[in-house]
């Protein structure tokens, strides 16, 4: 209707103008609509991703709290079940000493009380060592790992060996403790579930990356298993490993050796630059 009003002499120009304008507007509106929908899609995706991240954070936090509670209960049980009765017995011996005036009996009861107090000291020392291994504190990760592996090998069931290739410069103590706990947790898992006949640990560095690799010949797990277990309600120990490594901004990889004979676990950390 509108086009009909236009002068015939300029009909070609009018057609170009009419369709050109409609085309340009259609393109612009199409572009704007596309951008709106695309952005909505991206936002929805990001929100899902963030929700998943939050859920995982929550799971890790729960695992960490549960682990802390378990540790507290273990310490409480050790103190209550072992240290408590020992000290009570020592107290009995000392009471006996007050009642009984016989010199020989008195000496005997003092000796017994001393023995019991020595045992209690040892017990408390053990508890304290389990909280912070003295070898780790005084001599570092390498010695602590070697010490643990010697104890495991000493049992005779499994051959455990460790080799640190480049550990002249120690990690900060807090980081060493975290790495040590992760190694302990991995060893625990191997001992509990894998039926392995050997564990071999190696340490390497590459640039500012710090690597710890563990091989064993038992029944192991792959990265997919690890991810599945850390996202499920089970796998408290694995969640604990994950949350500990998160503190160090580290990563862990579980894989089967290409030869299909061994399982390999690699811990990767960023080495802090010396200030």
């Amino acid at each position: 209707m509108f086009l009909l009003q236009v002068n015939n002499q300029h009909s070609d120009v009018s057609v170009v103008l009419f369709f050109g304008t409609i085309g340009m507007l259609a393109l612009t509106i199409g572009l704007i609509v596309f951008i709106i929908f695309h952005q909505r899609k991206v936002i929805k995706y990001q929100m899902t991703l963030q929700k998943m991240e939050n859920e995982q954070q929550k799971m890790l936090l729960n695992a960490s709290i549960r682990l802390q509670e378990e540790e507290r209960q273990r310490i409480a049980a050790d103190l209550h079940d072992d240290a408590g009765p020992l000290l009570a017995t020592a107290r009995l011996y000392l009471n006996e000493n007050l009642v009984n005036m016989d010199k020989t009996t008195q000496l005997q009861s003092i000796y017994n009380a001393k023995q019991i107090i020595d045992d209690t000291i040892q017990l408390i020392r053990n508890i304290s060592h389990s909280l912070m291994p003295p070898t780790l504190k005084n001599f570092g990760l390498e010695s602590a790992v070697n010490d643990t592996f010697q104890k495991i090998s000493g049992s005779g069931n499994l051959n455990a060996s460790a080799r640190f290739h480049d550990y002249r410069e120690r990690l900060p103590l807090d980081n060493e403790l975290i790495v040590f706990r992760v190694i302990q947790e991995l060893i625990n898992n191997i001992l509990k579930h894998s039926n392995a006949s050997f564990i071999h640990l190696t340490q390497n560095t590459n640039g500012n990356k710090f690597y710890i690799r563990m091989h064993h010949d038992g029944k192991g797990m792959t990265q997919a298993d690890f991810e599945r277990l850390t996202k499920s309600a089970a796998g408290l120990g694995l969640k604990n490993i994950q949350s500990r490594l998160k503190v160090l901004q580290g990563r862990i990889f579980f894989e089967k050796d290409p030869s299909q004979t061994y399982y390999k676990v690699t811990i990767e950390l960023n080495r802090e630059e010396p200030q």
Binding site: V6, N7, Q9, H10, V13, S14, V16, L17, G20, T21, M24, L25, L27, T28
Partner: peptide
């Protein structure tokens, strides 16, 4: 600007009435 682009581009080619 997309709506008026062709109009202003072809403005000089249009008759006074157009």
């Amino acid at each position: 600007f997309t709506g008026t682009f062709f109009f202003f581009l072809l403005f000089s080619d249009l008759s006074g009435k157009d």
